[in-house]
């Protein structure tokens, strides 16, 4: 187990390095100038004022030197200062990360809580109306993007349920309870597509398992229907479902960018979007690295859970 885990973690190092190099290259390849953001359209990009700004931000150095400066700092845990605000990047990320983490976790919980039972129920009633109904709803959930559901939810609630404070400010640090309450709706919106994915994987895996001979054996030895379904059926169907949950979690982090925008949530997605928009290179670098690490971590957890769920991997791994 330890060796398995250690191997997975060592593999993430080149991944993170590659991602940092790529995000650095991409953000610098996009045309546009941070000076135009800081100084506005009335200052010439080759004027003295513009040169001052560039010099102060080391932007007059060649790109490999800039990357080198950044990497040396990052290795020592210093992600530098935001080019736009002039403040250290790390505390910014630290203050924005909790909202995204809580939002993603809540969505994942919703998605599992809805998707798993729905998938099992659909498989069990295959071809009959509950199955058809669940699949129809799922198709709708899958084909409506979160930015549409989000905007629609915000608009409808503001029209018909104005006392439901959808757009209040979230402060998880000082007022976690009301923060979580505010996050309920965004989390629900974000979870729709994931719940659908999880439902479909569960249904497919269950259908396969339900026809296995050991299910008949379990029934024959007189186990209760629910026990057969959950303990013998679902347990064996879980492996592909866990994979789906892992993939979904990565999608949730990406979807959070959209949902944070619609609901005005101070999460990492907003931070990243603003940074890209302002060409705040250091902020983009650090934020992308953190998000990547998050996704990589989720994948490691998924890998490790195989190990727990499937005894066969324990023997070979």
């Amino acid at each position: 187990m330890l060796r398995y885990a250690a191997g997975r973690i060592v593999l993430t190092v080149p991944v993170l390095f590659g991602v940092s190099l790529m995000s650095f290259a991409i953000i610098h390849l996009i045309p546009g100038d941070i000076v135009s953001v800081l100084a506005g359209p009335t200052v010439a990009l080759d004027s003295e004022a513009a040169q001052n700004i560039r010099r102060a931000l080391h932007l007059d150095q060649p790109l490999p030197v800039q990357y080198g400066i950044w990497l040396m700092g990052a290795l020592r845990g210093d992600f530098g200062n935001s080019l736009v605000m002039g403040l250290p990047v790390a505390p910014q990320i630290a203050s924005h990360l909790p909202v995204t983490l809580v939002l993603t976790a809540m969505s994942l919980l919703f998605a599992i809580a809805v998707g798993l039972p729905a998938g099992v129920a659909a498989a069990k009633t295959r071809g009959r109306w509950p199955d058809l109904f669940i699949r129809a709803v799922a198709l709708l959930g899958l084909s409506t993007p979160p930015f549409f559901v989000g905007v629609a939810a915000v608009l409808l609630l503001s029209l018909y349920w104005p006392s439901f404070k959808i757009l209040s400010a979230v402060d998880l640090h000082h007022d976690p309870l009301s923060g979580i309450r505010t996050l309920l709706l965004p989390a629900f919106v974000l979870s729709l597509a994931s719940a659908t994915t999880i439902m479909r994987y569960t249904r497919a895996a269950m259908l396969e398992v339900l026809t296995e001979p050991f299910m008949a054996t379990a029934r024959a030895k007189g186990a209760g229907r629910l026990r057969v379904l959950i303990r013998h059926g679902l347990r064996n169907a879980l492996l592909p479902v866990v994979t789906a949950v892992g993939v979904t979690a990565a999608h949730l982090v990406a979807g959070a960018v959209v949902v944070e925008q619609v609901f005005g949530l101070p999460g990492i997605g907003q931070l990243m979007l603003n940074a890209i928009y302002h060409r705040d290179y250091t902020q983009v670098q650090a934020t992308v690295l953190v998000v990547t690490t998050l996704v990589v971590l989720i994948n490691i957890l998924v890998d490790l859970s195989y190990y727990v769920l499937d005894p066969r991997i324990q023997q070979h791994g």
Binding site: V151, L159, F164, I166, L167, A169, V262, F263, G264, P266
Partner: peptide, 21 residues
């Protein structure tokens, strides 16, 4: 004065209707 940052234009319209801003 509380400045609530809501980047989405549709959401700002909704927030004004709902009285959140």
């Amino acid at each position: 004065l509380d400045f609530r940052i809501i980047p989405d234009e549709g959401s700002r319209m909704a927030a004004l209707r709902a009285g959140s801003v």
